[in-house]
Write a protein that binds this DNA or RNA. Structure first.
Lengths: 229, 229
DNA sequence: ACCTGAACACCGTTCAAGT
DNA sequence: ACCTGAACACCGTTCAAGT
């Protein structure tokens, strides 16, 4: 008799009494699910199930799904690598930092998509602004254009990450033109046609070279327009 | 007797025998709903209800929701205004064209969001590529950088539209920093703090001047990097 | 060929009720 | 104060059955 009932009792107590909910483990669990199944696989109900509870329980810690998104994003941004304070020129450090941000977004399925539609709240987003403002300032951009410049860099890199994530997710690959290229008429669209025939579209997804080029474009552009008030 | 039954028959026949479904009216109806209620208000079930049928009926004309998105986007792009072939410089025409694209995205709630996550298919997207390639070519950008340049311009403008739509939708307004600015510590984030105190963030949402500046940044940057192979 | 109702497997969010 | 089950009002998609 004393051998039978303990089994059940132990099986209940052994899982550590439900692991105590908190914002922190909710966000961690959610990021785990995002990593594994992407944004479409993420739901409050799945997070709740993973935490062995019901979706309603999460509302003690979260106002709604949007708040979870916002918290997830800021948490993920913690792993953007700070540039070493070394003696490399500011432009190299700036690009490296932005590429690190790009990688953080790109490596977790769906995070870039989330970053495009969510306004990041919290310390890690602020720290990114601080770092980027510092680097542009070091590059000689004056105060009047600093904020616009940082916003532009962040927005564009976020957009690249979202676009590339999209290609990866859908298997599509040649830019925003999509499969329309297949049914291309030389008379209607001579320029697109010529460039397509010339293979100019095929390598559009070549992430790294293109990203480097694009960052140089923006940085040079900002430098050229930084005091045009 | 002959007076009673007709009523019911007429009431069925008067609604024009169900208006005959087609891809076209499905897309139009969907764009109407998007216009009115935004992306979150759009669903296949709502489109179906508006067309006085069930959601399952739409699957004769659409593979899935994603295809509807794609069709909606291309349809909407039809109203991007072509630049007049006049004698204005290419840069002005390019900027005007991109601003027209921005407005098309911005004016319909949720369309920008849709454009960020959907690869446009169809003739209108191709026509935009054709126009933009032509304008950059006229500006002297060489073939090696044309495709990257157009992709960059389109991606950035799409991203601006999505960001600004987001601000409008949420009432938020100061860039990607969000409400974190309220709890700002001068020691941890001196640069952000100083610029915030100086009011540099408050006008970040000033759409038009900022957009013009950003387009000049990219165009100048492309010109500066257009033959760096 | 086109349309439909019903079903399936999901959602976010609320709320009364429990501890 | 925290957690829960059940309910509400939704989703996209499939499929057998009708015309």
């Amino acid at each position: 008799m004393s051998d039978k009932t303990p089994r059940e009792i132990i099986s209940r107590r052994n899982r550590p009494a439900k692991a105590a909910l908190s914002r922190d483990i909710i966000v961690s669990t959610a990021l785990g699910i995002l990593q594994k199944d992407g944004l479409s696989g993420l739901s409050l109900r799945r997070v709740a199930t993973a935490l062995d509870t019901g979706a309603a329980s999460l509302y003690v810690y979260l106002a709604n799904l949007d708040e979870l998104y916002s918290l997830m994003l800021d948490r993920a941004l913690a792993s953007v690598m700070l540039p070493e304070a070394g003696n490399r020129p500011w432009r190299d450090r700036l690009k490296k930092y932005l590429v690190s941000y790009l990688h953080v977004l790109y490596e977790r399925q769906g995070l870039a998509q989330l970053a495009m539609s969510t306004i990041a709240t919290g310390p890690n987003s602020l720290r990114m602004w601080e770092v980027l403002l510092g680097l542009l300032k070091e590059g000689g951009v004056d105060d009047a254009r600093l904020v616009w410049g940082v916003d532009m860099l962040l927005l564009y890199v976020t957009a690249i990450a979202a676009e590339q994530s999209n290609w990866r997710a859908t298997g599509q690959d040649f830019g925003r033109v999509g499969s329309a290229l297949a049914t291309l008429s030389a008379e209607q669209f001579p320029l697109v046609y010529a460039l397509f025939q010339g293979g100019r579209f095929s390598g559009i997804g070549d992430g790294d070279a293109r990203t480097q080029w694009a960052l140089d474009v923006i940085i040079d552009g900002i430098k050229a327009n930084h005091n045009s008030f």
